[in-house]
Design a protein around this nucleic acid. Structure first.
Lengths: 212, 212
DNA sequence: GTGAACATAGGGTAAAACCCCCTGTTTATG
DNA sequence: CATAAACAGGGGGTTTTACCCTATGTTCAC
């Protein structure tokens, strides 16, 4: 008996193509393809349509991979979700895994790795690449040290950093020395894994600390 | 005699998968797969490796689709290039077509449309979807009215500036000298009235040039 | 009452960003 | 054909960032 797989991706060419690849695997067969989470949930209402694994894209219109995975875990906990995305964003990966994905594949994965991933998810219950492992370790660090929560002053600083002001000017406005401001910046770079101010600005906007 | 196709895409899963799809078509067969333009050019040095059609991704590391297509048109004008991308960016599509692509497919194309596209490119010499047609009409409009204040390369540069990359790294990626990049930056600061890179990032996001 | 955690701040250095100035080449257009 | 844009590159400078490592005083828990 082959394991059944459903591919959910808004890029039809990709889902059809991946479906084709999976058909080549001995132990797996494709049940059907979907273009978004909503379509999948509709399909699942028929018990005949319940697969062993869902290969899920993260970015989709109508209902994205994170929402869909969350719902799946509640309503069909037996279905294993394997995420598939171009996104290497740490937060996205974490969100997807927290939502209940058993693994996270990049779209530049090779065919053999896809087969591996499918097999391991069915056997061991999970599959993680090095990239994802790194992200996980990093997130554990921040969770243990409790660093993840940003302090009041840091948030205030970030908002200033999202303007054209120099650090010297920010220091003056916050009534702190330039060196203290550097301290805030360095701490943030460290715990948010950023290289420079541009990274901080993008982080702030993504996380709605600053709204342009 | 089947027409031969080469798939060039840095996402291995995608290229393998698309290769699989094409193998199902009566009139076409896959010659080989490549991960980037450089790899393709190397392969082509052997006359046995010259295909009828190249299915080319636009965004690739090392050598992207636009550069590669330009070179192909010069050195192997008999090879027909069909672009394949997620990018719906007007400028990218235009560039790719100017570079000599015979058609532009989105990655959400259906299998049947891919077959159509391949056949039409071989028979008529071109294939254009509605989306691309719209873009073309639109570009004619804006070219007439000259609405776009920002130049193509500037927009491309801005997108890079919204990442953690240094200007040196941006220069490398855009295949320009650091000094040229500085030129773009200075021009933008001048005409947009900005003080520094942070200002540029905020401007880009406000004006939807870059979406975090 | 001692150590951890935190906010503050300094000194020094190297790299990146910023700011002038300047020279070509290609491409479009009157 | 001339002229203007757009495009690509360079010299040489200052300012700002980024990254080291260290130090002091306060608060708070054990």
């Amino acid at each position: 008996m082959k394991y059944t797989v459903v591919v959910v991706d808004d890029h039809n060419l990709l889902s059809q193509a991946i479906g084709g690849l999976i058909s080549d695997f001995e132990d797996f067969e494709v049940l059907y393809l979907c273009s978004n989470g909503k379509e999948l949930l509709d399909k699942l209402k028929n018990p005949k349509n319940i697969p062993d694994i869902v290969l899920m894209d993260v970015n989709m219109p109508i209902m994205n991979g994170i929402e869909t995975t969350t719902i799946l875990r509640e309503e069909y906990p037996q279905i294993k979700v394997l995420a598939l995305s171009i996104e290497e964003d740490e937060n996205i990966i974490l969100k997807m895994l927290r939502a209940g994905a058993k693994g996270y594949l990049m779209k530049d994965t090779r065919k053999s790795e896809l087969k591996n991933a499918l097999s391991e998810v069915m056997e061991k219950g999970y599959y993680h690449t090095n990239t994802v492992a790194k992200v996980l370790v990093n997130s554990l660090k921040t969770e243990k040290t409790g660093v993840s929560a940003l302090k009041e002053r840091e948030i205030e600083f970030i908002k200033h950093a999202c303007t054209e002001k120099t650090y010297k000017e920010i220091a003056d406005e916050m009534c702190l020395s330039y060196k203290t401001i550097e301290g805030y910046r360095n701490a943030l770079f460290e715990k948010l894994n950023l290289r420079n101010r541009t990274g901080l600005v993008i982080y702030a906007i993504k996380n709605k600390i600053y709204t342009p």
